[in-house]
Computed example of a mutant assay.
Amino acid sequence: MRIANLVGETKYAVRLSLDLKTIGGDRETNGEISCMLMEDPSTWGSMTGPAEQALKAWMNDRKVEDSDNIDGHSLAQLEFWDHEPEKIKESGERVDYEADLGRRVRTAQILARTRHLTFALLCSWECRLDYSTINESIFGGYRIKVDALLADGVPGLLQQFSAVYRRLQEAADSAPERDVTEELSQAITTCRRILKAVVDHVFPARDEPSGDGLVLDDSKHRNRLSVFIKETVSSDSNRALISAIVAGLYERFTAIDKMTNKAVHAEVAIEIANLCALNTYIVCGEIISLHALASEQESEPTPTLETAAT
């Protein structure tokens, strides 16, 4: 139930809580407890919300055969009554196991269903969390590389990046319909500056043009990045792949620029900014990785005739 609550699975958090809750109690308090387990408490009381779906599933599982009754005992109560005949027998009293057989069978079925549901849910969440961990590890690796470079070279960018995104997130949380065109524009500008800072690191500006005639001064960081990829990546297929990823990021920048000519709501803007930041970090992380690999290869000693013979 705790894991269901942590991963936002309201239906199963409430469903499992019904197995733990004993019969009775204050109705208002019971409702408050259920709301505590809900990702969106505002859906409490709706006929089709996750809490109502959980209650319906629980009642279907607890139906007593050949009747309209429901076995509403908690798991603790069911286990208590399941063990009670043995305690009565130990005291010397006679126990009519045959008369009690139907209840014991029903109890075993309820406990087995609950164990099976719990096991299936845990397996599902384990797969989900494992997948999430892998994704976080992959992106986290890129983020660490980029943040380390920026913190060392342009620490102000990181502060600006955080400030802009805080404002966007606060607007999305408090006033999702508010126009945040200016904040979105600032966020995308910051992403551009992050990319430029990384390009400045791996391929500083030059006065002379490239062999293809491309201008490589400070303002032409896209040209510099193109030449860097061409000089660093020897495989034509890998070079084409990386160039396509980079081009996609620049196209995203351009598309968002056009969007900021109109009003953009906060809830939409935060999604756009998040995706843009994610793509920026991935591209920058790959650029830094390519630069590090090229630096390692350059630092390796060139074999001489003597070392080759050895």
Rank of each mutant, 00 (worst) to 15 (best):
D212C: 09
R252C: 12
P41R: 08
V105T: 12
A171E: 11
S289H: 09
A205F: 02
C276E: 10
M38N: 04
I70M: 09
E300R: 13
D40N: 14
A187F: 01
G24K: 05
A120D: 15
A240I: 07
S124L: 03
A205V: 03
L214I: 04
A247I: 12
R167P: 08
S237W: 05
T118E: 10
T254W: 01
R178W: 07
P85K: 01
A151C: 14
M259K: 01
S295R: 13
Y165E: 15
E182P: 14
V105C: 08
S46N: 07
T43I: 06
R104Y: 05
V146M: 05
K258A: 00
G141K: 03
S210F: 03
L157I: 08
D179L: 06
E32G: 10
T304P: 10
D66I: 11
F80L: 05
P50S: 04
L249F: 12
P209F: 08
H201F: 12
H201A: 14
T254A: 04
Y142K: 06
L117C: 12
C123R: 10
L214R: 03
C35T: 12
L195P: 00
G92L: 02
G49T: 01
I188N: 00
A175G: 02
A263S: 14
A197Y: 11
A57C: 04
E98N: 09
Q169F: 10
G102H: 10
N223M: 04
V199K: 02
P301M: 09
S219I: 07
